[in-house]
């Protein structure tokens, strides 16, 4: 039961989880009424054609009248071969649409995650070591502010203040701006702030709680008794041990923000990213695109959890390889 075997089993589990998620999505697709067929049939019926005949022709053309198992094999094959279909709402293949969109999401998403982790851990650890001081209370206030305030409201207030009143920042995202330009940084500022405010708070509260737990632990006292400086105690002992649970929370938090946050933020700031793409796909009943924008976050979640499991190997020598 060594480390290699553990890694192999984690990867195998990730593959199984992916397969289950993909199959479950197929099941959902099967039981959902086909919106495209209904629309086509209704239009045909309005122009005097037979409703049912048109509907059947529509399904037949897309191979949707075949037996379930045949469709299922086709579906899995298509996903595996990256033939994810054509998005009529975007007028291009699904994968091309996603390829265009993810760049815009990553531009605000990656900085927001980095900022929230650094700032969240930083404030959390500082608060833990300076408990019941004004700085600690200020940190807690900021955290509760971040948790309590609705994302969309905060975004609108920021737009009003910095975009409309002060006229310092653009009020919406302009995708024609060059990627590496001051203007691009300026227009990404507010989305990054809004997204990280929500996430910083969580990271801060968790890291503060973890650090308090370990700051009182016997091994930290041992380190102090050796003559270790506060910085050494914090980085080599408290943070090093706290990283095990904190990294788990970070992954979960990143995924939560990815699923929920991006829809709201991309809509408000008019960023043509993955969130907006998914929203448009849903609104326009663009089934292949909905499928893709549903599966991609699922894949990211599975990969994130796999990375987390592998990170434990490096972070925590106590991990029991035989037990998982």
């Amino acid at each position: 039961m060594g480390m290699e075997w553990y890694v192999v089993r984690r990867v195998a589990w990730a593959v199984v989880a992916t397969y289950l998620a993909v199959s479950l999505t197929f099941g959902l697709l099967m039981v959902t009424p086909n919106a495209g067929a209904d629309v086509a049939a209704a239009q045909a019926a309005a122009s005097g054609q037979d409703y049912d005949a048109v509907r059947e022709r529509y399904l037949e053309r897309r191979g949707l009248d075949r037996p379930v198992e045949e469709q299922y094999i086709d579906y899995i094959t298509n996903i595996l071969t990256f033939d994810w279909g054509y998005s009529f709402s975007q007028g291009e293949p699904v994968l091309a649409a996603i390829g265009d969109a993810w760049v815009y999401s990553a531009q605000y998403f990656v900085p927001a995650i980095i900022i929230s982790a650094l700032l969240g851990y930083g404030i959390g650890l500082y608060s833990a070591l300076n408990r019941y001081t004004p700085t600690d209370y200020l940190g807690s206030f900021v955290a509760y502010f971040g948790i309590s305030i609705p994302n969309f409201w905060f975004a609108i207030v920021l737009i009003l203040l910095f975009g409309v009143v002060l006229r310092l920042l653009p009020t919406f995202y302009d995708s024609s701006v060059a990627l590496l330009s001051v203007q691009n940084v300026k227009q990404l500022l507010m989305p990054v702030v809004v997204l990280s405010t929500a996430s910083v708070a969580g990271q801060m509260r968790y890291s503060r709680a973890q650090a308090i737990e370990y700051a009182r632990s016997a091994f930290v006292k041992t380190a102090r008794a050796k003559g270790a400086s506060e910085w050494r105690v914090l980085t080599r002992h408290i943070l090093r041990v706290a990283l095990v649970p904190l990294s788990t929370i970070l992954i979960a938090d990143v995924l939560a923000v990815l699923f929920a946050g991006s829809f709201i933020i991309e809509t408000i700031f008019q960023i043509p990213g993955l969130g907006r793409l998914a929203l448009e796909a849903i609104q326009q009943k663009d089934t292949p695109l909905v499928l893709a924008t549903t599966l991609i976050p699922v894949f990211i979640a599975i990969i994130g959890n796999l990375l987390q499991d592998l990170a434990y190997v490096a972070l925590d020598p106590r991990i029991d390889y035989g037990d998982r």
């Binding site: 016997a218 091994f219 041992t222 008794a225 020598p317």
Partner: peptide, 28 residues
């Protein structure tokens, strides 16, 4: 901090908790 460890050292009660669980004992 100069005195701790170099001139006055401590051994504590519970060895189960007094070592950092994620650092090898040699390093500690």
């Amino acid at each position: 901090r100069e005195i701790r460890g170099a001139e006055i050292a401590h051994v504590f009660q519970n060895p189960q908790d007094a070592l950092n669980p994620v650092i090898s004992v040699g390093k500690q």
